[in-house]
Amino acid sequence: MKKSIAMIIGMVFLTATTSFADSTVSGKVINKAEIKKSANIAIGEKSTANMGSIKMKDSQVSGKVINKADIKKSANIAIGEKSTANMGTITMKDSNVSGKVINKAEVQKSANIAFGKEAKANMATITMKDSNVSGKLINKADIKKSANIAIGEKSTANMGTVTAKGANISGKVINKAEVKKSANIALGQNATANMATITMKDSNVSGKVINKAEIDKSANIAAGNNAEASMGSVTME
């Protein structure tokens, strides 16, 4: 297997990723990514690095949204003031899905790192903001011997999580996270580190909210003035 390195400066770079904005899809959206011994790097003030992910913005989907990512011995890095590094994730903003949203991510011996003032590092997660889903929301994360690190004043590190803000979900929300020999670290003034959690704020769910976490020999660390670390928990505000 050849090693591959991809780098781009000052813009977004996508490795085995489906990304769309202002779009309408009648049917399934499926991204299947198998990534080994690779590096995806974005450098710039507003850089974003996406590896094995689906990213939606201002879009409508009538059908299932499925992301299946198998990532081994790889690195996804974003460096910049507003950098975001997404590895094996589904990210939705101002979007509507009529169907199930499923993320299945297997991450082994890999690193997802974001450096920057407002850096965010997401590994094997579903993140929703101001979006609606009519169907189940399922995240299945299998993470082994990996590191997810966010460094910056407002850094957030999410590993094996579901995060929803201003969202409406008509169906079950299920997070199943198995984390072994891994580290999730957020460093910064308002750092937040979430491992195998469901976090919901200003959101509505018509159905069960289920979090199943199996964590073994792993570390979840938040360091900063108002730092908060959550492991294997459900938080609703």
Rank of each mutant, 00 (worst) to 15 (best):
K3Y: 11
I5D: 13
M7C: 06
I8W: 01
V12L: 12
S19Q: 13
F20R: 02
A21Y: 10
A21N: 13
S26H: 13
K28E: 15
A39W: 01
I43Q: 03
T48S: 11
A49C: 05
S53L: 09
I54E: 09
K55I: 13
M56W: 07
K57I: 08
V61A: 04
K64V: 10
N67E: 10
N67W: 07
N76R: 00
I79C: 04
G80W: 02
S83D: 08
G88Y: 06
I90S: 06
M92P: 09
D94R: 05
N96A: 12
N96E: 15
V101K: 03
N103W: 08
K104F: 01
A105R: 00
A111H: 00
A111K: 05
N112I: 10
A114G: 10
K120I: 15
K120T: 15
N122Q: 09
T127R: 04
D130L: 01
K136D: 12
I143P: 01
K145H: 05
N148R: 06
A157Y: 05
T163S: 13
A164P: 02
K165F: 03
V173M: 05
I174Q: 02
V179F: 03
A183L: 05
G188D: 09
Q189H: 09
N190F: 03
V205Q: 06
G207R: 06
V209Q: 05
I215K: 02
A223M: 15
G224R: 07
A227H: 05
M231F: 03
V234R: 04
M236F: 06
M236E: 12
M236D: 07
M236C: 02
E237D: 14
E237I: 11
